[in-house]
Design a protein around this nucleic acid. Sequence first.
DNA 1: AAGTGGTCTAGACCACCTT
DNA 2: AGGTGGTCTAGACCACTTG
Lengths: 233, 233
Amino acid sequence: MTAASRLSWIDVRDVIRARILAREYGLGAKLPRDEDLAAELGCTRTTVHRAMQDLAAAGLIDRKRKGGTHVLADPITRATIDIPVTRSEVLALGRAYAHRLISAQRAPSPAPITARFGAAQPRDMLHIGALHLADARPYMLEDRWVDLATCPEILAVDFAQISANEWLVRHKPYTRVEMRFFAINADAETATQLGCKAGEALLTVERTTWLGDAPITTVQAIAAPGYVLASKS
Amino acid sequence: MTAASRLSWIDVRDVIRARILAREYGLGAKLPRDEDLAAELGCTRTTVHRAMQDLAAAGLIDRKRKGGTHVLADPITRATIDIPVTRSEVLALGRAYAHRLISAQRAPSPAPITARFGAAQPRDMLHIGALHLADARPYMLEDRWVDLATCPEILAVDFAQISANEWLVRHKPYTRVEMRFFAINADAETATQLGCKAGEALLTVERTTWLGDAPITTVQAIAAPGYVLASKS
DNA sequence: AAGTGGTCTAGACCACCTT
DNA sequence: AGGTGGTCTAGACCACTTG
């Protein structure tokens, strides 16, 4: 027999999750109140709360004050993706990192870029093209816009020494980020830059960041063929 | 002046986050002990702990017992992606949903599929091809393998009535999932099935799920051209 | 209006990890 | 071996949201 010294929130979570998985609490069903579960399992409401918090974060249940706790009627699969600085990502693969500046021009943001930030008017920006290399081969192509009102210091950065990607991450923290993932066919120019055939399928990640409400940067990162993005454990 | 009735963990989190963003605690720097922060800010250690928990989940800090709390030396961008049942996804777009079974054959898993599960030996599986439609147009193409040892009931399912995707999500909960995102060029067969041109770039999501250590299913979902996967707010 | 989850306090003990 | 974060309890009050 196992001595149950005290019930940890992980135990509680596992019990509740098991009941959900076994459909003891079916899809869309309402769970007992935290207090009742606490009484039933022999722990504090705080402990049940901690367990529920974890299940909610995992996307298994939905909680509302007064409304109670419900199993999600439409189950979802939730994945977390970590995107490191490209230099670190390459180094972590055990490959040599380098980057190359392609272009950097000051210009007002074109409509699609303005729209990404949800801004009404075009903004004064720096438009940067850059290529990340792994073992001297093209790894990722960046097409980036940096808001100069929020981030004037970028004008003084020497992109021969540090990529815009890394400079921004290290010097311009953000509070909000939106990401979009999609696939594109390499056009002629992209193919040349990435050293692949025109038409090849390329995974593309679009990232836009803000500091509060102020736009910082938006980037379209086009990965070389074969790139795979994996979810965190 | 604002009356500070009591300090909520969100306030504490914002203070600490602001310090990190302002590089008051620089990259890789060690933060004060929870207890000291609590004393400084005038709240309980529990409240500081709750704030730290949030910052750790966001990927800003790293905590270790005895080691203390550190700002991550290599900042990462963390995104969460929710993947609903395909039917729900289509309906949420305000489009009509339908699905079509392409094939369903019992077969031992080929090496690449066996490997996805980390299994040593081929397993008895059901191989299913299916097409999801939105407004009667191809939306997503599924190439799925279901483990029959774990999930024999799948053999009795009528895929004319419910897609394997939805049946599994509703009847076979999982405890672990791994996802991979990449881009592929449509081959001739895929192009025909998705109603696009051969060679078009298609976003592909590979999902593999387990219940404990037991394999459940692995699926390669190929989205029609134009598909975009967005991170959760 | 009231029920339910969310949070805070105060204090104690535990467990992990670095030193 | 000791310091730090992790957790649990017990009780109180708060705030959202639904009936």
